[in-house]
């Protein structure tokens, strides 16, 4: 076997992020894989477990422009996309770009906004461009949305419909830190100060190159058989009302490729698919009514489908 390609600075990014977000290696790796697979990330958890910190850390380490949008219930699409204002000096309307014109958007508490505002963001995510007042403006490259949402049972939320959840490649949950990590957190310095000290470890160009490497990773027919078997199972098993869509299947392959790249392999193994499965599949299946958490759903799905 050939030696694995050098992951280069991706490993360094992960290591540095691990210094800030303690005890969440898997979630960090998933978030980075999501970015490498050109997907958007949804982080769902209680307030205060480090969702914003995670988004911020990744943006800083990758050297990306970062904007944060706090979603509220009185928010309008123009607050995200931007607005044309009449310029008295020039005698014409000038477009003031909204916070979405950046490389990493942190859409905080996305489910507190009304569906109208949500859909403005979600359309931009899909098209990677924004149309305001008839003019289409491309978004920067790379473009990456990290949205956070509070669990749906919290007061004052507008849950994202299935069709919009599907736009997110992954949904991850951070969860409470374990005992040791929490102790280290309490003993350590303020995370905000640590964040301010972070030096970028990559350039946006390097990130784009890594994204291309991930997309070119070898996927064997046997692995595609496996992905298809997983999708077919969700479509026929009675426990879910709707199975995984073809878009979910594409996302699963892309995410598994990114995961394999992070592992430093030049081909994708079933283990890579299994590693990203709960993050990629659970929110699409859970949307169809399932009380279990994402990892339980992923586990059950993995154990129900033999490797072909």
């Amino acid at each position: 076997m050939r030696p694995p390609p050098d992951p280069g600075s991706l490993a360094a990014v992960l290591a540095a992020a691990g210094q800030i977000i303690l005890g969440k290696e898997r979630q960090l790796r998933l978030a980075l894989a999501c970015l490498l697979a050109r997907g958007h990330l949804l982080i769902e958890d209680l307030p205060g477990v480090g969702k914003t910190t995670l988004a911020h850390t990744l943006a800083r380490l990758l050297g990306l422009e970062f904007q944060r949008v706090q979603f509220t219930s009185d928010m309008l699409p123009a607050d995200i996309l931007g607005i044309s204002v009449f310029d008295r000096d020039g005698g014409e309307f000038r477009f003031h770009p909204g916070p979405i014109f950046t490389q990493v958007v942190l859409a905080d508490e996305i489910n507190r906004a009304t569906p109208k505002a949500q859909s403005a963001l979600l359309e931009a995510m899909e098209e990677r461009q924004v149309t305001v007042e008839g003019a289409t403006r491309p978004l920067p490259q790379p473009f990456f949305v990290i949205a956070t949402q509070n669990p749906a049972y919290q007061i004052g939320t507008f849950p994202l419909p299935e069709s919009q959840l599907d736009r997110f490649l992954m949904r991850i949950e951070l969860g409470y830190p374990d005992r040791a990590a929490e102790r280290a957190l309490l003993e350590g310095r303020d995370r905000r100060m640590l964040l301010a000290e972070i030096r970028p470890l990559m350039t946006p160009e390097a990130l784009l190159a890594e994204q291309q490497r991930a997309a070119a990773l070898h996927v064997a027919p046997a692995l595609l058989d496996y992905v298809q078997a997983l999708a077919a199972h969700t479509r026929s098993a009675p426990e879910w009302r709707a199975g995984l869509s073809p878009r979910a299947g594409l996302g699963l392959v892309a995410a598994a490729r990114a995961w394999a790249l992070l592992t430093g392999r030049d081909h994708v193994l079933p283990e890579d698919v299994q590693a990203v499965l709960s993050a990629v599949a659970a929110h699409r299946l859970a949307a169809a009514g399932d009380a279990r958490n994402a990892d339980e759903i992923g586990r059950a799905l993995i154990e129900a489908v033999p490797l072909p």
Binding site: H218, A220, D266, H267
Partner: peptide
Amino acid sequence: AALYAGLRYGNA
């Protein structure tokens, strides 16, 4: 396992 994985899923 490495030989098998390389043969079945690899890009050799």
